[in-house]
Design a protein around this nucleic acid. Structure first.
Lengths: 217, 217
DNA sequence: GCACATCACTTGACACTGTTAAGTGAATAT
DNA sequence: ATATTCACTTAACAGTGTCAAGTGATGTGC
């Protein structure tokens, strides 16, 4: 083994080790975020879970927010994948409906993630190493939605006054998001008997789509 | 003036004074909550604004949460009033539509209040002096909605499969809430061009109602 | 009229948070 | 063999919500 080969090998090991503790931080943070909530999870708790000092985290992430954003990015791509699977459905209306249900499943299966993806404002927009605004990963999911709605508009399946794709997309997204987030924040409210959110979403999708189609059969 | 009269008079004055500083705390808290957000406003800031020591607040409110809840209660009744004005409309469907728009106006006119009314889980349910769960003030607004939806169902204006009043109510409430809350948390997102939430809500109400009516004319 | 009690409010602290400047020590480079 | 790098630690800071122990003016009872 040449000296240069040793150099690169050991360098690679060092980088791998650093990446490993970085990942350990991410894993610990995720677990605590899910079980205790993002706000309630402290840097000290994350560090203790993996046997490091709190300040060690700051060698891998600028601050707590950066840690959150990093996990958020992974979740967005995971949501994007779930949406992608549905992209093959031919009929844009049925695809829209199925996207809504898949979105709901994702949210209810990953409540903690959903909370900080869509129910808390991201303070700093995600920046890459050069400080440029990075192409948002949620654009994938939102882009899918927008395209699906647009296809329907182009095909002329929706009522003529519903010709604005962003508005239609935000109507569908918002509607579903509302049922989900209301469930998350108020399902323990003793004064309101909440229906199963999946059922309510289904009902909403049906009603909204039926009310949006040109020939409202 | 008899001694007893003096006693009650001075006692009344003391109580009035206490109530005044209590109100001063509430006013200061409200103002700061609105301008800086609930999380970001500190007890110290509230106290400083009215020239008291932070701990003085604890003689009037058990903790910060109790302060929030108190303001919340006032807001719920204010929302309830806004809903009540619409209660006179005869047609339950048109009334539902108008309630949705009024709800949206309330939310967009009082974003900070709306945030902690519907976008953050209330930790302890509101308790009265005896520790009993107090009848939720939002039951007023939600009750209105429920009744309006029920009237429509009884009149037979909705499709037969939409016979569950809570589900229908939560569909409408959730839908509107979603557009509003998404706007609040993501309107600064540089990747999504948001439409005016009032417009989107209007479109949604029309679509949802049209898709829910029996004779979908 | 004077000692006593009440109680709105203050003082000073505690435990906790996220975060940082300075230091340590083992692995690498020369 | 010496110097350097750098992942990580130590010790601290400023800020948070909150509380136990006072303080002092006001009101009460003899």
């Amino acid at each position: 083994m040449t000296t240069s080969a040793i150099r690169t090998a050991s360098l690679a090991r060092r980088e791998r080790q650093k990446a490993e503790t970085r990942q350990a931080i991410l894993d610990a943070a995720r677990e605590l975020f899910v079980s205790d909530g993002v706000e309630a999870t402290t840097m000290r708790a994350i560090a203790a879970k993996i046997g490091y000092t709190p300040t060690a985290i700051y060698h891998h992430f600028r601050d707590k927010d950066a840690l959150i954003v990093e996990l958020c990015v992974a979740d967005f791509s995971s949501l994007g994948q779930a949406m992608y699977k549905i992209g093959r459905i031919e009929d844009p209306v049925e695809r829209l409906r199925r996207m809504g249900l898949a979105y709901t499943d994702f949210a209810l299966d990953n409540p903690s993630q959903y909370r900080f993806m869509f129910m808390t404002p991201l303070k700093h927009p995600m920046l890459d190493a050069n400080g440029n605004v990075v192409k948002s990963p949620d654009e994938d999911a939102y882009g899918f939605l927008l395209q699906t709605v647009s296809e329907g508009i182009e095909k002329g399946v929706y009522r003529p006054e519903l010709s604005d794709a962003p508005e239609l997309a935000q109507m569908v997204w918002g509607g579903i998001h509302g049922i989900i987030s209301l469930w998350f924040t108020h399902c323990d409210d003793p004064h309101i008997v909440f229906r199963d959110p999946r059922e309510t979403v289904r009902t909403m999708c049906d009603a909204m789509i039926r009310g949006s189609l040109r020939n409202s059969a």
